[in-house]
């Protein structure tokens, strides 16, 4: 049983690391702000969620686990709000989403 929990925690932490790196590459490579918001969402939900879940499995039932749950809850509340505010401010700031002709924008 302890081995199963350990393996599950490793798998969650490694998958979370993978998603975090994916989002990092995405925020660097994607062509405009509104697509980069999507990459930021990947790291905030899957990356942070899976890494913190793996750490929770390592911590077991303790005060550390409760703190990790609090961190995860705050991240899940604040990161979509921050993403929404960035998109709203960008739209009010006259930043147009990239529509059509995707390949030419990709090369720049």
């Amino acid at each position: 049983m302890a081995v199963a929990v350990e393996v599950a925690s490793w798998v969650a932490i490694l998958a979370g690391s993978f998603f975090a790196l994916t989002g990092g590459v995405g925020i660097l490579r994607l062509p405009d702000l509104f697509t980069r918001l999507h990459a930021a969402g990947v790291t905030d939900t899957m990356g942070a969620g899976l890494i913190l879940f793996g750490l929770m499995l390592q911590a077991g039932m303790s005060l550390v686990c409760i703190k990790l749950i609090l961190i995860l809850a705050f991240l899940l509340l604040t990161s979509p709000t921050a993403t929404h505010v960035v998109a709203k401010a960008a739209l009010h700031g006259e930043l147009k989403p990239l529509l059509g002709n995707f390949h030419s924008a990709w090369k720049t």
């Binding site: 932490i13 690391s17 990356g47």
Partner: peptide, 11 residues
């Protein structure tokens, strides 16, 4: 995990 997070921070 720490290395992956640091790499993401660099990107």
């Amino acid at each position: 995990a720490a290395a992956a997070v640091l790499g993401t921070m660099a990107l």
